[in-house]
């Protein structure tokens, strides 16, 4: 089976559209017919990562690759990057603004939640160099 690759673009601070890509990914995965629990985990990760790019990051891309064994989300943005990735992964750590909080975000649970739901997570980021998340999920026992 050939790999299925889908790309979506993310626009920084576009709160009116924020999260739409992840909803499309969710319905794409549903239409392929993956297990609901796997879809739930992937959708949550995509959504948290997309919201982070919109809120804290910059313009970017959300790439989904589906192969028989894995589903991989690659979320990248050209924003300010994360100074201290280890710190950002801590529950409760957040640099969110009051505006983000008003929308119901900024509790500092996004990255920890991605980490919890993914089979593997790699974060490539540093100050001023943008952010790139590689979130991997195994399909079945794969």
């Amino acid at each position: 089976m050939a790999n299925l690759v889908n790309s979506f673009s993310i626009k920084a601070r576009d709160f009116a559209k924020a999260g739409e890509n992840s909803l499309q990914i969710q319905s794409l995965l549903k239409s392929i017919g993956f297990e609901p629990e796997l879809i739930r985990r992937i959708s949550i990760c995509a959504y948290e990562a997309e919201m982070n790019a919109v809120m804290h990051g910059g313009d970017g891309e959300l790439l989904v690759t589906v192969d028989p064994k894995n589903i991989v989300l690659e979320v990248s943005d050209d924003g300010p990057g994360i100074k201290d990735v280890k710190l950002a992964l801590r529950e409760g750590y957040s640099t969110a603004t009051p505006e983000h909080r008003e929308m119901g975000f900024g509790a500092g649970m996004g990255l920890p939640n991605i980490n919890k739901n993914a089979d593997s997570l790699a974060i490539d980021s540093s100050d001023g160099r943008g952010t790139r998340l590689r979130i991997k999920f195994k399909v079945g026992d794969g």
Binding site: A16, A18, G19, S22, L23, I44, Y47, G104, F105
Partner: peptide, 23 residues
């Protein structure tokens, strides 16, 4: 949170999107 009812005081589009993602 799948198949639960969400009671919220928040009233914006993110409530809808988050709810769909959470099922």
């Amino acid at each position: 949170n799948s198949n639960v009812v969400l009671l919220t005081g928040l009233c914006n589009v993110q409530v809808i999107r988050t709810s769909v993602i959470a099922g």
